[in-house]
Write a protein that binds this DNA or RNA. Structure first.
Lengths: 329, 329
DNA sequence: AGGAAAAGGGTAAACGTTTACATTTTTAAA
DNA sequence: TTTAAAAATGTAAACGTTTACCCTTTTCCT
């Protein structure tokens, strides 16, 4: 592949001159510029970004660590980062990490080796201490969907607790008394917080969530089905169901209808996340909107600005918003 | 950030030695190795991938051009590439291209500048000649979801025509006579091919698709709804509907049920793609499985092998497969 | 003890750029 | 013309690695 030297030689100029025309710099005559341009074209010259990064100490790269690209939620996250990257003429390098602290650390290391300008990390498993230490070493590092008090200026997160509260209040306002919940059985904070907020607000409304009205399972369609079957099997009736996420909610609706319950006439169901699924389900899902793409955009802005030693003024703490569709009444 | 020189200086050895321990090379004694390792740790040394790429002429990067990361279909594609990348210790660099040949070209150029080992391109807009020329210049370039005869060994594609055929045969085998179709109005090959295959196989079965039984619109939920409304408005009855993709199919089901038609009792609907949506809809969607993730994996394998001057033996030409669920009868 | 082979370690060039600084050429005012 | 300023171009160092090649210790056999 042709290098700047080849172009210089063929065009009969110095590499400095070629560099100047490549970078649209000043100080180069029209005549030479045209000559160089035509040689570049003839030779199919493309500048080497690695060499450039080395000498300029800028990689024009933004790194992103997520567990799984195929999950629409993370795809939306990545898409948000990508949009800001595009605006800043920076490219998106993705590092996926599979379900272990070890692998999350590795994914980050790869991005550090690449000397990414900025790094956005979705980590649920890495220890707080590690993350804090990392954030000290890397100026452009931002955590998304995770809150760590001591480095809260580096975090962009959603208030899960409040999400639970909102769901509870919605059910209360609809007059529901017999309330159930299907939750994720993953050992991360989110399920605990959502449930806690849900409980708290229920109490405020003089309602309560019986212990056996909470069923845990995988946060997936199948998990939602199984969790709902268990709830049904217990025999206790309920008219309102709070699901950990949209996938579980849709699984729940499916199981409920298979068992003769109409949604929302017999049971109201509320989801969480507002992923694309929720608009495609029938009935359309009432859910809590998780503005992940916007959050990712802000995280990217923040990361880029921290990397440049500034501090962008963007929202970091998000509240989920209730989207009323057809699954609650 | 500490460099190899810093480590060498502090450890009292040459940079060659440090390089050897970093790369787990031979020819370094236990004693020195330990010393270097501890200094590396103390200084928080991380090798610079750009410098490495420069000298080794290997970027350990695989590039991917797609139009939109937030679309689950492309997210699945990216995920497939990522899996192979991981296996090959290579990182995924994503370049999104928005709806124009120009922008597709730019996205590719960015990856070339990065000297990606291999490049996977999902391009519907770039001219064949450009793509052919590009594939000549770049050994590790593979086209996904596009077929160009003269460089067919660089293509991984799905047989859209056959997809249409399969749908038609399925309807015929179910005894349907009054058949309709909602198609995408995008001016790319896929909609034309699917429809053509559908028509062709219908004729073989002595059936036919009336011209006014084809309605075009955007390939989205909303587009599916509108296209179906138009079909309904025409007044002609139909009992089988072939949708361009799952989103349109789900939109169609929604509109059909809103108009008092039961799916599949009154109308059978078949989708295309088998994206995650189709499993979450009610009734679950009968559709043509588009094995995009597997295709992407093979594209990545192929790209990497071409880049290494070999030629992996993988399937390049895929057939969609009928997934019978609940929306046809 | 002598010596050869093996092991450990160092030197310096190369990768493809950018850029401060130096040099040459052109322009235009005197 | 001369000449000072401006414009164009060139020189060379630097970025952080890897690696071929060379030199110095060890090791271990006879």
């Amino acid at each position: 592949m042709a290098t700047i030297k080849d172009v210089a030689r063929v065009a009969g100029v110095s590499i400095a001159t070629v560099s100047r025309v490549v970078n649209k710099g000043p100080k180069v005559g029209q005549r030479t510029r045209d000559k160089v341009l035509s040689v570049m074209n003839e030779l199919g010259y493309t500048p080497n970004a690695n060499a450039r990064a080395l000498v300029t100490q800028k990689s024009t790269t933004i790194g992103l660590v997520i567990p799984d690209l195929s999950d629409p939620f993370f795809a939306a996250l990545a898409s948000g980062v990508d949009k800001i990257a595009k605006d800043s003429n920076v490219q998106l390098l993705i590092s996926t990490s599979s379900m272990s602290a070890e692998s999350e650390k590795q994914a980050i290391d790869l991005l550090v080796e690449r000397r990414c300008e900025a790094i956005i990390i979705h980590s649920k498993l890495l220890a707080e201490t590690t993350l804090i230490e990392l954030s000290q070493r890397i100026p452009g590092l931002i955590l998304i969907d995770r809150f760590i008090e001591s480095i809260n200026d580096r975090c962009v997160w959603l208030d899960n607790l409040e999400g639970g509260r909102i769901a509870a209040r919605h059910f209360a306002s609809l007059g529901h008394k017999q309330i159930a919940c299907i939750n994720s059985n993953y050992s991360i904070d989110d399920p605990k917080l959502r449930l806690e907020g849900f409980r708290l607000a229920l109490v405020e409304q003089a309602l309560k969530l019986e212990n056996d009205m909470v069923s845990e399972n995988e946060p997936s369609l199948k998990g939602g089905e199984i969790a709902t079957q268990k709830l049904l099997a217990s025999g206790k009736p309920f008219s309102a169901l709070f699901a950990y996420n949209d996938a579980m909610a849709i699984g729940a609706i499916s199981t409920l209808e298979d068992n003769g319950f109409k949604v929302p006439q017999d049971v109201s169901v509320i989801g969480f996340d507002d992923v694309i699924l929720s608009r495609y389900s029938r009935p359309k899902l009432t859910t809590l909107h998780y503005p992940i793409e916007e959050m990712a955009q802000n995280a990217a802005k923040l990361a880029l600005s921290f990397a440049a030693n500034e501090q962008a003024d963007v929202v970091r703490n998000y509240l989920p918003r209730l989207i009323k569709r057809e699954s609650t009444a």
